[in-house]
Amino acid sequence: MAAATPRKRRTWTLDRVSFMLVFLGLPLAIYLTFVVSPLLQAIGYSFTNWSGFNSNQSFVGLDNYVRLADDAVFMTAVRNNVLMALVLPVLVIVLALALATLVTVGGSSYGQTKGIKGAGFYRVVSFFPYAVPAIIVGIMWGLIFDPSSGLVNGILTGLGLEQFGSYPWLGDSRTAMPVMLFVMMWSFVGFYMVLFVAAIKAIPAEVFEAARIDGAGRFRTAIAITVPLIRENVQTAWIYLGIIAIDAFVFAQALNPNGGPENSTLTMSQRLLVTAFEKGQFGMACAMGVVMGVLTMGFAGIVFLINNVTGGRDRVTMA
């Protein structure tokens, strides 16, 4: 039957051509010009010794990458970023999931499934930090953790903990990184809570009611019902947070512009900026950019892999 019907010939009408130009050609051209070509250019520069301030550049092969591997400071930055990419997503997702569960299904055990009292209020309040630009978040927390006049040490000394009289939270290599992770978590948790709330709301209420009738408690419901059903959202969040952690430029720059005590909060992006514009080594800086890009891709790949291996491939369907 199908063979008998001649394939409908597509004609190149003006309407059709202009549609393709505007919705396919234009975005593609912009993408190629502003994303793909600079990307290729940057990879190309990473194999040169270009200073960035003249047009002399010669090919040095993998020299920049070899020197990066030997550069103790850059490797410290890589380790810091990797640590952040491992810790930040866990922190934010666990907290955001807990909050999202509370404001959606954590309420009264009788009647309709609903969030705790005042859920709407909490939802709005916890989204606030995300509405504040990162640089302002960084500066604000920098002041809160100020050793002499900060709120944190003020409260701690007020409680009689005199040893915190001038404790440098951001200036001690033991606490600088935890503080930075805390600040980033504070900033992002509201957004991911809202993301999870939306996902949980999409789950039919009957599922929760059925679980409750079967005698499942709130915690059991959360890990056995909610999480598997919003698995895709968790994966998305995990990848986004990983990307944020591998960059982390604004927070690092606001809290410890010099990389922190013993370089304990130094990020690759900070080192890239210094290498390019202060040291005038654009070739080397491009190599750092490539390393960042590869790490980001690798991180996403690992998250996909883990999700698949742990059963993310089996679709959870509710027909």
Binding site: L39, I243, M297
Partner: peptide
């Protein structure tokens, strides 16, 4: 969705790279 994630992922990674590109003329 996966395509979407992949796309945004790539864009983010590219952002890091394009930051240091320039034109030598």
């Amino acid at each position: 969705r996966r395509t979407l994630i992949g796309g945004s992922l790539a864009t983010a990674a590219l952002g890091a790279l394009t930051a240091c590109a320039g034109t030598a003329s």
